[in-house]
């Protein structure tokens, strides 16, 4: 197809926008201490933060899948009073500044929080400033991503397949596991990857609710921040590079399967 002449008032901002997005990433790559990279990567603090990040974001994704897929199903398939309100509530953590989310979590699940108090006195469980707290903070922020993605997939899937299953003697639960889930599997996978990426990058809610303890609650983004604060720019660059590589790898993996725009 022949490209028509692009108007200058559109062309220039478009190019500037692209540069604006790429320049910082290029800056990161330029300032990477390639010579000492592998030594720095092997530092115990780095490995520990990366390990903690991968574990907590994966666990948070699992939590989101277990809670979010049924929630999305309820929103997409069951008519109940206040459904619109529920959907609106679910999107709140999406637009809420994560720091506020962290404080909200602290008020609910902290040692003096409404539920946290009871958890502490009844089971002796304290969540804030623990690895479990990190998982909760990440899941809180990432759950809306999964619910919205899966609900969209469920709405897009033809519910008449579920009716066909019912006429063949399938109960609603069996229909869910044998027909609905396989039909929306790509949507769930895409939602899970988005959810995982969001959890991996989580900073505000984590540092507020779980603190910043190396080995326990210090995930990669927190480590980047602390390294930077302590004046070790090179160290922060190395940690950032790792997060960048992981993010790009996810994006590349997603693009091939689910994100290809027509």
């Amino acid at each position: 197809m022949k490209t028509a002449r692009v108007p200058v008032p559109l062309l220039i901002p478009a190019i500037l926008g692209l540069i604006f997005l790429i320049l910082p990433l290029a800056g990161l790559l330029v300032r990477t201490p390639w010579a000492t990279l592998f030594d720095r990567l092997a530092e115990p603090g780095v490995v520990e933060a990366l390990r903690l990040s991968l574990i907590t974001s994966t666990l948070a994704t699992v939590v989101c899948l277990v809670l979010g897929v049924p929630l999305a199903w309820m929103l997409a398939r069951v008519t109940f009073p206040g459904r619109r309100l529920v959907r609106a509530l679910i999107t709140v953590p999406l637009v809420l500044p994560p720091v506020v989310g962290g404080i909200a979590l602290l008020l609910a699940l902290g040692r003096r929080g409404i539920v946290g108090q009871w958890l502490d006195s009844t089971f002796g469980i304290t969540l804030p400033f623990t690895t479990a707290g990190v998982v909760i903070a990440e899941a809180f922020v990432a759950l809306p991503f999964l619910v919205i993605a899966v609900e969209g997939a469920l709405r897009g899937a033809d519910s008449r397949f579920e009716e066909a299953a019912a006429t063949l003697g399938s109960t609603r639960w069996t229909t869910f596991t044998h027909v609905t889930l396989p039909l929306v599997a790509p949507g769930i996978a895409a939602g899970a990857v988005l959810c995982w990426a969001r959890a991996l990058g989580e900073f505000g809610a984590t540092i507020t609710f779980a603190g910043n303890y190396p080995g326990i609650t210090q995930t990669m983004p927190l480590a980047v921040y602390q390294t930077m604060e302590s004046g070790d720019l090179e160290g922060a660059v190395v940690l950032s590079l790792i997060l960048l590589v992981v993010s790009v790898a996810i994006l590349a993996g997603l693009r091939d399967r689910w994100l290809t725009t027509p």
């Binding site: 008449r160 397949f161 009716e163 066909a164 019912a166 006429t167 063949l168 003697g169 109960t171 039909l183």
Partner: peptide
């Protein structure tokens, strides 16, 4: 009775064969 408990079989207009 809900559909799954009825002794019926349905052939739908566009068949609705499970694609997976």
């Amino acid at each position: 009775l809900p559909p799954e408990k009825r002794p019926i079989g349905v052939v739908f207009q566009d068949y609705l064969l499970f694609p997976h």
